[in-house]
Amino acid sequence: MKKTYILLAGVLVLVAALAAYALFAGGDGQPGSLPAAQGNAETEFKILAEFPASTDTPYPVYETDVPAVTVQSVEETAKLFGMTGEAAVCNQKTGEIQLVDDSKADISRLSMYPTSGALLYEIPDREYPDTVTEQPALPAGDEAIRIADAFLKERGLLPPEATVKSVEVNQQQEVWKAGGSEPEKVYNITLAVRYGRTLDGVPVYGDEMAVIIGDGGEVVGMVRCWRPVEAAGNTTIVSAEKAYENLKAENTVLPQDLAGYDRITIDTISVGYWMEPRIYEQKTVSPVWVFSGTAYYDGKEEPYRNYVSAVPQGV
C-alpha cells in the first residue's frame, strides 16, 4: 500500500514537472501549450479615477498643412540661425535633409524632415559635451524662458498659440562606482524649455517644441515639430470605458513598450490630440483618450501615459 502511495506521488510530481515545462516551452519562440502573449493583457491595470461621463458632444478633427521641405528651404531656414552651407538628404529612409556649417569654431547642424516639417538645430560640441568636471552655469527657470522666447521670436519660430509647458533638465552626466546604486557625482548639462498648445481648448500631445540652453545661458539647440492644422469637420468619440478596454489590450497609439510592467494604475483620464513623431507623415489629427498614472516594475515605479484613439473604429 505504501509503495502505491509513493508511486502515485511520483506520477504527480512528473505531471507537475511536465506542466511546468509546457508553460515555458515557448521560451525560444517555439510554440508551447500556452498562447503567445497578445497585447499587454497580462499587466494588471487599476483605475483610480472615475471614468468621464459619456458625451455626444462632437470634437473637431483637423488636417495638417505641412509646408514642403526641400534642399532650398533648408538652406533658407539655415540663415535664420546664421548658418551657411549646402543642404543634402542625409537619410534616404526618413528623407531628413541636413545642412552642416563647419565654417565656425563650433560645427552647427540643421536638419529638417519633409514628413512633418520638423526642424532640429544643434551645436553638437556644446549641446552634448563629452566630459564635464564642474557644474555648468544654467539659468533659473524664468530667465531660461526669457532666453528661449527671445531666441524663437527673433527667428519668427514662436507660434502664437504656443505656451511654456515646462523648464526641465534635459541632459545629465554622472559618475558612478562599481556596484553602486546611486551616482557619486551628478552634473546638469542643459535645460529644455518646452512648449505646448491646445486645439479648441484640448491639449495636444506629441508635438515637439523645445529650446535647449547650456552653460552660461547659451542656446545650444532647438527642436520644432509643430504641424500646422486646419479644421476639417467633427467626430463623436467613443466612451472612456471602451477606450480603457483597448488600453488593456494594447490597442494604443504608441507601439508596445519594452518594459513588461507588473502593474499600472491610472489616476487621470482625459481627451487630447496626438501628433505623430517627426519621421512619420500625418494627415489627420483626431481626438484620443489619454490615460495617465504610474507604472510599477521590479519594486520601482515611473510615470505612465498612453493614448487610445477616441474615434469610433479607430485604433
Binding site: 552634448y128 526641465e168 533638465v169 534635459n170 541632459q171 545629465q172 552626466q173 554622472e174 559618475v175 558612478w176 562606482k177 562599481a178 553602486g180 551616482p183 529644455a192 518646452r194 515637439e208 523645445a210 527642436v223 515639430c225
Partner: peptide, 12 residues
Amino acid sequence: DREIYRWLYTCS
C-alpha cells in the same frame, strides 16, 4: 577601473 561614467538625455 572601479569608476563608470553615464550620460542621460531626455527625448523631446
